[in-house]
Design a binder for these strands. Structure first.
Length: 545
DNA sequence: CTGACTTGCGCC
DNA sequence: AAAGGGCGCAAGTCAG
């Protein structure tokens, strides 16, 4: 497989191949890539977000790339890497390189810091670091998956998630009333605000101000310290129903109301940016429109095009299954043989009820030590010794300030300022009796983070492999441009949406399952753990699950 | 006025 | 019923 490193030099692009360097004007790049792509090329560039959108806009899709920014971030933290091999004058530049999104580019046409970096030499350092690693194979898989994630993310932004403004607006009008002029509350919110003020005898109350609401609740004699919905729901008072209703609808208005539509939906597509590796654990982040927390409430507006369908797939209980596999815990893997892992634990006699199983497993992965989930731990530790030992060891390592890693070698951050130095920095006077307790509290909190890191991060690796393999399978199902074939339009930790012509939907569903099985093999070889999917072929996202 | 922080809540 | 881990976002609040 030929490797071609692309380098921007002003308006000229240099393409460094194995035997030659081509220089071409930037606008000829799409043609250049299109021509060479069929022969099989791994394109190497500083950062997918700086190159790929322009190629996609010209209808050019690439099969493989190396994203040096993403790879650099992984290698710099990996305990599998000898950091000396990565060191260079430009290391801080690569460390601080940020992905670009269209809005930023348009608003801040500043000189790009990427232009001061040299991709060919960075590639050499990265290759040397991987080659010298005792865990070369794992790192290679992680880097390939991460780069592929960069391609998927750019393609999802390019295609956008089909979104029906008319459906969304009907939904808003039904719940809130007609769209009000700027600066005014929708009629239904205004009515609820009036009911809240009346119930609290507070005519000037601003229900959007938590502090204001808290004062009014306390003045009415209610014993509350915050205004969270759950807190309010515990109270017996006439203000509770209208206030809860107000908060729910106000949330819809501010998070996914008319201005959200104005900002994020264009030409029938919700377009946000997905940022692979945006979370320290390796999960994706997003920017623009809160793409990773699209409420169930508005999902009816995500509707496939005429003659098209969504294939919606999610993995049941991804993280516990990953924990079973990465720890090699055969007893837990046996419970995971059931489509419902928690039910499998009940069948095996480990716990009495599904609710207990869920509580115990979540507690083990998140570090819940109190209440029922804490009481469950001894039983889980007896039954699933390897799985529980893995998370316990990760927690202890974190408490000692050590780095932990995922299966493929993504390293956790060092605790840094998070626990010891911070109180002084904040001017928080260390109380003689409290400071030790505070330190212990911080240590335990970091232990909960590292405990979760190993599982969440390895689950993110599984999901990346799933996505990468699925991307290739989808491409093979169709012809023409990306958006004419079945293509990914959404990804959320353990769930994907594929937009596909209706006649290919069943094939897509099958490929989604095959890709999941392949991801399991890639990460865990022959270890007997299943990753069962819920797959639905639907017109609207709301019909799934 | 801007920017940083807090609060609360949506998603996994 | 959450809790316990990870996020993004909007509005209010407050310091400079």
């Amino acid at each position: 497989m030929e490797r071609i490193v692309l380098v921007r030099r002003g308006d000229v692009v240099e393409a460094h191949g194995a035997s030659a360097v081509h220089r071409l004007p930037a606008e000829r790049l799409p043609g250049f890539v299109r021509e060479r792509e069929p022969a099989g090329v791994r394109w190497v560039w500083d950062d997918t977000t700086r190159w790929y959108p322009a190629l996609l806009a010209e209808g050019v899709r690439v099969a493989r790339c190396t994203d040096l920014r993403l790879a650099h971030a992984v290698l710099r933290r990996s305990p599998f890497v000898d950091q000396r091999l990565l060191a260079a004058a430009s290391t801080p530049g690569w460390d601080s390189l940020q992905p670009v999104t269209e809005t930023e580019a348009a608003l801040f046409p500043l000189e790009d810091p990427a232009d001061r970096l040299d991709p060919p030499t960075e590639l050499e350092r990265q290759q040397a670091a991987v080659a010298a690693s005792p865990e070369r194979r794992r790192l290679e898989l992680l880097l390939a998956a991460e780069s592929s994630g960069g391609l998927v993310a750019a393609e999802m932004t390019h295609a956008g998630l089909p979104w029906r403004v008319d459906v969304h607006e009907r939904l808003l009008t039904g719940l809130l009333g007609p769209r009000p002029p700027a600066g005014h509350r929708p009629a239904i919110l205004e009515r609820l605000a009036g009911e809240v003020r009346a119930a609290l005898a507070a005519p000037a109350l601003n229900p959007d101000s938590p502090a204001d609401v808290l004062r009014a609740l306390q003045a009415a004699g209610l014993p509350v310290e915050d205004t969270r919905s759950w807190t309010l729901a515990q109270l017996e008072h006439p203000v509770v129903p209208p206030l809860l209703e107000y908060k729910k609808l106000a949330r819809l208005l501010t998070a996914n109301g008319w201005s959200w539509l104005d900002s994020w939906v264009r030409e029938g597509r919700f377009r946000s940016w997905f940022l692979p590796g945006g979370v320290v654990t390796g999960r994706w982040a997003s920017t623009g429109g809160g793409a990773l927390s699209v409420p169930v409430q508005v999902r009816p507006a995500a509707v496939a095009d005429e003659g098209w369908r969504f294939v919606v797939a999610d993995v049941a209980q991804l993280e516990p299954r990953v924990l079973a596999a990465m720890s090699g815990d055969l007893a837990m893997a046996e419970a995971a043989r059931a489509a419902d892992l928690y039910q499998g634990m009940v069948s095996a006699g480990t716990v009495a009820t599904r609710a207990e199983a869920k509580l115990g497993i979540l507690g083990a992965m998140y570090g819940g030590t109190r209440g029922e989930s804490g009481r469950m731990m001894p039983r889980l530790a007896r039954r699933y010794p390897q799985a529980i030992a893995l998370v316990e060891e990760a927690a202890r390592a974190g408490e000692r300030g050590e780095v932990v890693r995922t299966l493929l070698g993504r390293g956790s951050p060092v605790p840094g300022g998070a626990w010891a130095e911070r109180p002084a920095d904040l001017g928080d006077p260390p109380e003689p009796t409290g400071s030790r307790q505070e330190q212990d509290r911080r240590r335990r909190a970091w232990g909960r983070f590292t405990r979760n890191f190993v599982v969440q991060g390895t689950a993110a690796e599984w999901a990346l492999c799933w996505l990468a393999d699925l991307r290739n399978r989808l491409w093979a199902l169709g012809e023409g441009r990306l958006e004419d074939r079945p293509h990914l339009v959404f990804f959320l930790h353990d769930e994907v949406l594929v937009h596909t012509p209706e006649h290919l939907a069943e094939q897509v569903a099958e490929e989604v399952r095959r890709a999941a099985a392949e991801a399991g093999r890639l990460l865990f070889g022959g270890f007997p753990v299943d990753f069962p999917l819920d797959v639905a072929v639907v017109r609207s996202w709301a019909e799934a699950g």
